[in-house]
């Protein structure tokens, strides 16, 4: 029962990641690609949590937390770079 649900959820997130990948490759503008990357890191957090669930281990939680922190900082840094041409003024 739970295995099936985890498998379905894996499938849904993988399709979501592929759609994000399409937007990342397709563009057309730079902010579009950054938005796609932003969505990809958020979805990868869910994939890691799912993997932790399926293997019954809590260790992956720390990895998910780190990706959340680093992903946010990088999105903000790139967005700032696009508006100002500089990250730290």
């Amino acid at each position: 029962m739970l295995e099936t649900a985890i498998a379905i959820a894996f499938g849904l997130f993988v399709v979501a990641q592929l759609l994000n990948l399409y937007r990342l490759l397709r563009g057309p503008s730079l902010p579009d690609r950054v938005l796609a990357l932003d969505t990809m890191y958020v979805n990868s957090i869910a994939l890691i949590v799912l993997y932790g669930l399926s293997s019954g281990s809590k260790l992956y939680f720390e990895a998910a937390m780190l990706i959340a922190l680093i992903g946010f900082v990088s999105t903000v840094a790139v967005a700032k770079y696009m508006t100002r041409g500089d990250i730290i003024e």
Binding site: A5, I8, A9, G11, L12, F13, A16, A46
Partner: peptide, 12 residues
């Protein structure tokens, strides 16, 4: 899990 997966898919 299913609600989460469906919403993530809709977002993408």
């Amino acid at each position: 899990l299913l609600i989460g997966g469906v919403f993530a898919l809709i977002g993408s």
